[in-house]
Design a protein around this nucleic acid. Sequence first.
DNA 1: CAAACATGCAACTAAATGGTTGCATGTTTT
DNA 2: AAAACATGCAACCATTTAGTTGCATGTTTG
Lengths: 105, 105
Amino acid sequence: MTQLAIAQIFKALGDPVRLQIVQRLSNGAALCLGELSKDLGISRQGARKQIQALVSAKVVQLHPAGREVKVQLDAATLAQSRVFITALEAQWDERLQALKQFTEQ
Amino acid sequence: MTQLAIAQIFKALGDPVRLQIVQRLSNGAALCLGELSKDLGISRQGARKQIQALVSAKVVQLHPAGREVKVQLDAATLAQSRVFITALEAQWDERLQALKQFTEQ
DNA sequence: CAAACATGCAACTAAATGGTTGCATGTTTT
DNA sequence: AAAACATGCAACCATTTAGTTGCATGTTTG
Protein backbone atom coordinates (compact mmCIF):
# COMPACT_ATOMS: atom_id res chain seq x y z
CA MET A 1 0.00 0.00 0.00
CA THR A 2 1.58 3.20 -1.16
CA GLN A 3 1.09 6.45 0.68
CA LEU A 4 -0.57 7.85 -2.40
CA ALA A 5 -3.13 5.07 -2.69
CA ILE A 6 -4.12 5.54 0.95
CA ALA A 7 -4.44 9.27 0.41
CA GLN A 8 -6.74 8.60 -2.53
CA ILE A 9 -8.99 6.44 -0.41
CA PHE A 10 -9.29 9.13 2.25
CA LYS A 11 -9.80 11.74 -0.40
CA ALA A 12 -12.65 9.72 -1.87
CA LEU A 13 -14.27 9.47 1.57
CA GLY A 14 -13.67 13.14 2.24
CA ASP A 15 -16.91 14.50 0.84
CA PRO A 16 -20.41 14.45 2.35
CA VAL A 17 -22.10 13.24 -0.83
CA ARG A 18 -19.65 10.40 -1.38
CA LEU A 19 -19.80 9.49 2.28
CA GLN A 20 -23.57 9.22 2.02
CA ILE A 21 -23.27 7.02 -1.03
CA VAL A 22 -20.90 4.71 0.80
CA GLN A 23 -23.23 4.55 3.77
CA ARG A 24 -26.18 3.64 1.59
CA LEU A 25 -24.18 0.85 0.07
CA SER A 26 -23.17 -0.55 3.42
CA ASN A 27 -26.76 -0.34 4.64
CA GLY A 28 -29.06 -1.55 1.93
CA ALA A 29 -29.15 -3.98 -0.92
CA ALA A 30 -26.94 -3.74 -4.01
CA LEU A 31 -27.95 -0.57 -5.81
CA CYS A 32 -27.56 0.51 -9.39
CA LEU A 33 -26.30 3.90 -10.49
CA GLY A 34 -29.76 5.39 -10.98
CA GLU A 35 -31.13 4.41 -7.59
CA LEU A 36 -27.94 5.52 -5.92
CA SER A 37 -28.21 8.93 -7.55
CA LYS A 38 -31.58 9.75 -6.01
CA ASP A 39 -32.06 12.10 -3.07
CA LEU A 40 -28.53 13.41 -3.10
CA GLY A 41 -29.63 16.87 -4.06
CA ILE A 42 -27.62 16.83 -7.28
CA SER A 43 -28.20 15.67 -10.83
CA ARG A 44 -27.72 12.11 -12.02
CA GLN A 45 -24.56 13.05 -13.86
CA GLY A 46 -23.27 14.92 -10.85
CA ALA A 47 -23.83 11.83 -8.74
CA ARG A 48 -22.20 9.72 -11.41
CA LYS A 49 -19.03 11.77 -11.13
CA GLN A 50 -18.92 11.27 -7.40
CA ILE A 51 -19.43 7.55 -7.82
CA GLN A 52 -16.61 7.52 -10.34
CA ALA A 53 -14.36 9.11 -7.74
CA LEU A 54 -15.18 6.22 -5.43
CA VAL A 55 -14.43 3.76 -8.23
CA SER A 56 -11.05 5.37 -8.93
CA ALA A 57 -10.11 5.04 -5.28
CA LYS A 58 -11.39 1.43 -5.34
CA VAL A 59 -13.83 2.15 -2.53
CA VAL A 60 -16.52 0.79 -4.82
CA GLN A 61 -16.79 -1.53 -7.82
CA LEU A 62 -19.10 -1.40 -10.82
CA HIS A 63 -20.81 -4.46 -12.26
CA PRO A 64 -22.78 -3.89 -15.47
CA ALA A 65 -25.93 -6.00 -15.70
CA GLY A 66 -28.15 -5.50 -18.70
CA ARG A 67 -29.09 -1.90 -19.00
CA GLU A 68 -28.11 -1.04 -15.48
CA VAL A 69 -24.87 -0.95 -13.53
CA LYS A 70 -24.71 -2.34 -10.02
CA VAL A 71 -22.51 -0.62 -7.48
CA GLN A 72 -20.80 -2.64 -4.80
CA LEU A 73 -18.75 -1.64 -1.79
CA ASP A 74 -15.16 -2.87 -1.73
CA ALA A 75 -14.71 -3.97 1.85
CA ALA A 76 -10.98 -4.60 1.39
CA THR A 77 -10.38 -0.95 0.60
CA LEU A 78 -12.30 0.18 3.64
CA ALA A 79 -10.22 -2.22 5.68
CA GLN A 80 -7.00 -0.69 4.34
CA SER A 81 -8.00 2.75 5.47
CA ARG A 82 -8.91 1.45 8.90
CA VAL A 83 -5.61 -0.41 9.19
CA PHE A 84 -3.73 2.74 8.30
CA ILE A 85 -5.40 4.78 11.01
CA THR A 86 -4.98 2.00 13.52
CA ALA A 87 -1.25 1.90 12.77
CA LEU A 88 -1.01 5.65 13.31
CA GLU A 89 -2.76 5.31 16.63
CA ALA A 90 -0.46 2.48 17.66
CA GLN A 91 2.65 4.56 16.94
CA TRP A 92 1.17 7.44 18.83
CA ASP A 93 0.37 5.29 21.86
CA GLU A 94 3.83 3.81 21.80
CA ARG A 95 5.30 7.28 21.90
CA LEU A 96 3.13 8.33 24.81
CA GLN A 97 4.16 5.19 26.62
CA ALA A 98 7.84 5.91 26.04
CA LEU A 99 7.37 9.48 27.20
CA LYS A 100 5.63 8.31 30.34
CA GLN A 101 8.46 5.91 31.21
CA PHE A 102 10.97 8.67 30.62
CA THR A 103 9.27 11.15 32.95
CA GLU A 104 8.80 8.52 35.63
CA GLN A 105 12.51 7.89 36.01
CA MET B 1 -20.44 13.54 15.06
CA THR B 2 -22.02 15.02 12.01
CA GLN B 3 -21.53 13.52 8.58
CA LEU B 4 -19.87 16.74 7.52
CA ALA B 5 -17.32 16.74 10.32
CA ILE B 6 -16.34 13.19 9.45
CA ALA B 7 -16.02 14.12 5.79
CA GLN B 8 -13.73 16.98 6.78
CA ILE B 9 -11.48 14.63 8.70
CA PHE B 10 -11.18 12.28 5.75
CA LYS B 11 -10.67 15.18 3.41
CA ALA B 12 -7.83 16.44 5.60
CA LEU B 13 -6.21 13.00 5.48
CA GLY B 14 -6.81 12.72 1.75
CA ASP B 15 -3.58 14.26 0.55
CA PRO B 16 -0.08 12.76 0.42
CA VAL B 17 1.60 15.80 1.94
CA ARG B 18 -0.84 16.04 4.84
CA LEU B 19 -0.67 12.30 5.36
CA GLN B 20 3.10 12.53 5.64
CA ILE B 21 2.79 15.33 8.15
CA VAL B 22 0.44 13.26 10.26
CA GLN B 23 2.78 10.29 10.09
CA ARG B 24 5.73 12.37 11.21
CA LEU B 25 3.73 13.57 14.15
CA SER B 26 2.74 10.08 15.20
CA ASN B 27 6.33 8.92 14.87
CA GLY B 28 8.61 11.46 16.39
CA ALA B 29 8.69 14.03 19.12
CA ALA B 30 6.50 17.15 19.19
CA LEU B 31 7.49 19.25 16.21
CA CYS B 32 7.12 22.94 15.51
CA LEU B 33 5.83 24.41 12.26
CA GLY B 34 9.29 25.05 10.82
CA GLU B 35 10.66 21.57 11.42
CA LEU B 36 7.46 20.04 10.15
CA SER B 37 7.71 22.03 6.92
CA LYS B 38 11.08 20.61 5.94
CA ASP B 39 11.54 17.93 3.26
CA LEU B 40 8.01 18.11 1.99
CA GLY B 41 9.10 19.46 -1.37
CA ILE B 42 7.10 22.64 -0.95
CA SER B 43 7.70 26.05 0.60
CA ARG B 44 7.22 26.83 4.28
CA GLN B 45 4.05 28.77 3.56
CA GLY B 46 2.76 25.98 1.38
CA ALA B 47 3.33 23.54 4.20
CA ARG B 48 1.73 25.95 6.62
CA LYS B 49 -1.46 25.89 4.55
CA GLN B 50 -1.56 22.13 4.64
CA ILE B 51 -1.05 22.14 8.38
CA GLN B 52 -3.86 24.65 8.70
CA ALA B 53 -6.12 22.22 6.84
CA LEU B 54 -5.29 19.61 9.46
CA VAL B 55 -6.04 22.12 12.21
CA SER B 56 -9.42 22.99 10.70
CA ALA B 57 -10.36 19.33 10.63
CA LYS B 58 -9.06 18.99 14.21
CA VAL B 59 -6.63 16.29 13.20
CA VAL B 60 -3.94 18.41 14.77
CA GLN B 61 -3.66 21.13 17.42
CA LEU B 62 -1.35 24.13 17.61
CA HIS B 63 0.40 25.23 20.79
CA PRO B 64 2.34 28.51 20.58
CA ALA B 65 5.48 28.50 22.68
CA GLY B 66 7.70 31.52 22.52
CA ARG B 67 8.65 32.24 18.96
CA GLU B 68 7.65 28.82 17.73
CA VAL B 69 4.41 26.88 17.43
CA LYS B 70 4.27 23.25 18.43
CA VAL B 71 2.06 20.91 16.44
CA GLN B 72 0.38 18.02 18.18
CA LEU B 73 -1.69 15.14 16.87
CA ASP B 74 -5.28 14.94 18.11
CA ALA B 75 -5.73 11.26 18.82
CA ALA B 76 -9.45 11.66 19.49
CA THR B 77 -10.07 12.83 15.95
CA LEU B 78 -8.14 9.93 14.50
CA ALA B 79 -10.22 7.64 16.67
CA GLN B 80 -13.43 9.14 15.31
CA SER B 81 -12.44 8.38 11.76
CA ARG B 82 -11.53 4.82 12.69
CA VAL B 83 -14.82 4.34 14.50
CA PHE B 84 -16.72 5.57 11.48
CA ILE B 85 -15.04 3.10 9.16
CA THR B 86 -15.45 0.30 11.65
CA ALA B 87 -19.19 1.03 11.83
CA LEU B 88 -19.43 0.90 8.04
CA GLU B 89 -17.66 -2.43 8.03
CA ALA B 90 -19.98 -3.75 10.72
CA GLN B 91 -23.07 -2.82 8.73
CA TRP B 92 -21.59 -4.41 5.68
CA ASP B 93 -20.78 -7.65 7.48
CA GLU B 94 -24.26 -7.74 8.96
CA ARG B 95 -25.70 -7.47 5.50
CA LEU B 96 -23.54 -10.26 4.16
CA GLN B 97 -24.57 -12.38 7.09
CA ALA B 98 -28.27 -11.75 6.42
CA LEU B 99 -27.78 -12.52 2.77
CA LYS B 100 -26.07 -15.78 3.60
CA GLN B 101 -28.89 -16.90 5.86
CA PHE B 102 -31.39 -16.01 3.17
CA THR B 103 -29.69 -18.08 0.50
CA GLU B 104 -29.23 -21.04 2.81
CA GLN B 105 -32.95 -21.48 3.34
C1' DC C 1 21.10 46.84 20.27
C1' DA C 2 21.66 43.99 16.19
C1' DA C 3 21.43 39.70 13.91
C1' DA C 4 19.17 35.52 13.30
C1' DC C 5 15.16 32.94 13.72
C1' DA C 6 10.08 31.36 13.58
C1' DT C 7 6.17 32.80 12.16
C1' DG C 8 2.16 35.55 10.07
C1' DC C 9 -0.43 37.88 6.38
C1' DA C 10 -1.86 39.05 1.71
C1' DA C 11 -1.99 38.82 -3.21
C1' DC C 12 -1.60 36.10 -6.97
C1' DT C 13 -1.65 31.95 -10.40
C1' DA C 14 -2.61 27.32 -12.20
C1' DA C 15 -5.01 23.35 -11.74
C1' DA C 16 -8.51 20.39 -9.77
C1' DT C 17 -13.26 19.82 -8.23
C1' DG C 18 -18.26 19.82 -8.07
C1' DG C 19 -21.76 20.78 -10.46
C1' DT C 20 -24.64 21.77 -14.64
C1' DT C 21 -26.95 20.94 -19.41
C1' DG C 22 -27.73 18.69 -23.86
C1' DC C 23 -27.63 14.88 -26.57
C1' DA C 24 -26.44 10.03 -28.00
C1' DT C 25 -26.70 4.99 -27.24
C1' DG C 26 -27.95 0.49 -25.75
C1' DT C 27 -31.76 -2.34 -23.31
C1' DT C 28 -36.19 -3.67 -21.74
C1' DT C 29 -41.20 -3.55 -22.00
C1' DT C 30 -45.59 -3.17 -24.32
C1' DA D 1 -41.57 -1.17 -33.82
C1' DA D 2 -42.19 2.35 -30.38
C1' DA D 3 -41.94 4.01 -25.80
C1' DA D 4 -39.64 4.10 -21.59
C1' DC D 5 -35.63 3.36 -19.09
C1' DA D 6 -30.55 3.36 -17.55
C1' DT D 7 -26.65 4.94 -18.83
C1' DG D 8 -22.63 7.37 -21.29
C1' DC D 9 -20.06 11.30 -23.21
C1' DA D 10 -18.63 16.06 -23.77
C1' DA D 11 -18.60 20.89 -23.09
C1' DC D 12 -19.00 24.27 -20.00
C1' DC D 13 -18.92 27.22 -15.53
C1' DA D 14 -17.90 28.65 -10.68
C1' DT D 15 -15.42 27.64 -6.74
C1' DT D 16 -11.88 25.64 -4.17
C1' DT D 17 -7.28 24.14 -3.66
C1' DA D 18 -2.25 23.87 -3.77
C1' DG D 19 1.26 26.31 -4.39
C1' DT D 20 4.08 30.56 -5.00
C1' DT D 21 6.39 35.22 -3.68
C1' DG D 22 7.18 39.30 -0.94
C1' DC D 23 7.09 41.60 3.12
C1' DA D 24 5.94 42.49 8.12
C1' DT D 25 6.23 41.18 13.04
C1' DG D 26 7.48 39.18 17.32
C1' DT D 27 11.30 36.41 19.89
C1' DT D 28 15.74 34.71 21.02
C1' DT D 29 20.75 35.00 20.99
C1' DG D 30 25.31 37.16 20.79
